[in-house]
Amino acid sequence: MSVVRPAFPVSRTPFMAKITYIDFEGQSRSVDAENGSTVMENAIKNGIPGIEAECGGACACATCHVYIDEAWREKVGGPSPMEEDMLDFGFDVRPNSRLSCQIKVTDELDGLVVRTPERQA
């Protein structure tokens, strides 16, 4: 099959942002994530360890807990009140804790770095 390159860039696929997950032992894994998907979904789809997501992203289990890299905290923002309540079920919750099913990938988050905790549940 021959590949025809367009004369000027055409964007057919949705924007892909790079997300890096660093586990508690320091190993880092990066994935390409579609805009609009969640940080949790991309972890599950790519078999990233350290995120369980028992409730499938309904903000009902707190097993998708991650720590947002300091450099990204402002861009990612803080949790909603509902998410803050659910974070009570997480362990070793820190000021940069978020539930990854509640973080939607956008252009802005291209390059995002999150760390997964030692245990989810």
């Binding site: 362990f91 070793d92 905790p117 549940a121």
Partner: peptide, 11 residues
């Protein structure tokens, strides 16, 4: 279902 509901054990 997904198994029995059991209390979360803090790490």
């Amino acid at each position: 279902g997904g198994g029995s509901f059991q209390p979360k054990r803090p790490p």
